[in-house]
Design a protein around this nucleic acid. Sequence first.
DNA 1: TCAATGATGGTCT
DNA 2: GACCATCATTGAT
Length: 211
Amino acid sequence: MRVDRLFRREELALDPVDLARLLLGAVLEADAPEGRIGVRLVEVEAYRGLDDPASHCYRGKTPRNAVMWGPAGHLYVYFVYGMHFCANVVGTEDGQPGAVLLRAGEVVEGADIVRKRRPNARGNGELAKGPAILTSVLGLAREQNGLDLTDPGSPVRLRAGERVPADNVRTGPRVGVAMAMDTPWRFWIDGSPAVSTYRRGGKRRQVRPAG
DNA sequence: TCAATGATGGTCT
DNA sequence: GACCATCATTGAT
């Protein structure tokens, strides 16, 4: 049976690692000028705050990451690499900052709109493959930072999708992250064509050769 | 099909 | 001034 309701804030007030598993299969929906676009999340990454060196929160509160210290269920959008935005769902619990990066999804509503925006995409399953692509497909940018995804009146909302069986969920190290390679906080739905390909992080390696 | 690389600008030290 | 939670393109198999 299909579950269609919006998430409530208290359901999302979890440790980001737990929130990441919950978000797999959920549908992020946004109102675009041309119509409604819905994306079923198939790949996410957890970023805890204070004890996670890879998190934007690790070095403390700044104007950029302030949203992650706020209530759960809000949208954290940040600008990266000069040309891209990435979107997160805030998973703050008991005042601890943290969020879940949305890495990839399958377009389940408004695919015709998305295809016009991204004529170069191969198959329908790969219309939202990659965090910056997913973010742009939904029309999210700086102005959407801080939106409440649990508010029915918000232009961007988060719906509970069909529950994903635990057997279908795989884990691994996070993409593009050089530190904390031993924490498998990337979660994805096995077999989805939209799951992005893994790339290791930049210069720093977890273990530097001795000598 | 896969690995290497340039584009590009905000954020923090 | 260095560092990026990236993408599309290029060039080598």
